[in-house]
């Protein structure tokens, strides 16, 4: 299986914040959801993938190529969507297209107008008059019109209403039918991912906690519920984080087998949602 994006031991330090030792592979032909709380380092990582930021240490490769020698070839194959509007506010979509299109060898005008029609985008109105959802659609139309193999999106669903969010996800799903496309997108709305993601990469405090297929995540993590009397410093070791309440405890484990061995039938297992995992891991008490 080929990796479209490969980060090896990537580190980037800022004042008071750093992204440390990231090893991340994004697999070709799949949708990878990139999750983590605000400020976990998702945008920084995406910026390094786009070469907007250069890592202090480590290696960033896209399509097996590095930015030093193949910057243009790499970007030719990427479609990008960012959280905010990066297009010239005062311009209309037609003029923005006239600026962006000639940058790409593979730009497809017919495809662009097809998306414009599908998204019902006005061509002659200034971008700044667009709603958040329309700006997103406009970015998407531009990102999709040069037959990009890899689509990188930073928080594309943030600030969108639920209906459009769903439309967007459906659209991404449609895009995936077309062969070897890869989508990598960050979000903190984890319910988006259950619908379309094949892989989940999870960042926290500048570190990559895991990058697994969505099935593995479901299999590896579980919520465990039981009475408080079952907990002691020994048995707690099987949990990533424990939440205590007067009625009993609820805990996240990444070692279901060990929990089964320790507690047997005295506890209840539940499927951990991505949100549960993010929430409990954020609790921060790492075992071992």
């Amino acid at each position: 299986m080929e990796n479209v994006v490969e980060l090896k031991n990537v580190t980037k330090k800022f004042k008071g914040f750093s992204v440390k030792n990231i090893d991340l592979q994004v697999k070709q032909g799949f949708v990878t959801g990139f999750i983590g709380a605000n400020g976990a380092g998702k945008s920084t990582t995406i910026k390094m993938m786009m070469n907007l930021l250069k890592p202090d240490a480590g290696e960033v490769k896209l399509f097996g190529l590095d930015y030093k020698t193949h910057e243009k070839a790499i970007k030719e194959r990427i479609g990008f969507v960012y959280d905010g509007n990066i297009f010239f506010e005062g311009l209309n979509l037609k003029d923005i297209k006239r600026i962006v299109a000639p940058a790409y060898k593979q730009w497809d005008d017919t495809l662009f107008y097809q998306y414009v029609e599908q998204f019902k985008l006005p061509l002659n109105k200034a971008i700044k008059t667009f709603s958040k959802g329309m700006q997103m659609k406009a970015s998407l139309a531009i990102a999709l019109s040069h037959h990009a193999e890899l689509i990188i999106m930073d928080e594309p669903t943030a600030g969108l209403d639920p209906i459009f969010r769903r439309e967007l996800l459906d659209l991404l799903q449609e895009l995936m039918i077309e062969g070897n496309r890869t989508i990598f997108f960050s979000t903190h709305i984890t319910t988006d991912l259950n619908r379309i993601a094949d892989y989940i990469a999870f960042m926290q405090n500048g570190e990559l906690v895991f990058n697994q297929s969505i099935h593995d995540v479901a299999e590896n993590y579980a919520l465990v519920k039981g009475g408080l009397n079952l907990l002691d410093s020994d048995t707690e070791k099987a949990f990533v984080h424990v939440h205590r309440a007067s009625t009993g405890f609820e805990a996240l484990t990444d070692n279901i087998k060990a929990v089964k061995n320790t507690f047997g039938d005295t506890v209840v297992f539940e499927r951990a949602s991505l949100e549960d995992i993010m929430y409990y891991l954020k609790g921060g008490i790492h075992h071992v």
């Binding site: 907007l52 910057e71 905010g84 940058a103």
Partner: peptide
């Protein structure tokens, strides 16, 4: 924003 756009394009 302009610099993000220009630098994300193949230039």
């Amino acid at each position: 924003e302009t610099n993000i756009l220009l630098n994300s394009l193949p230039y």
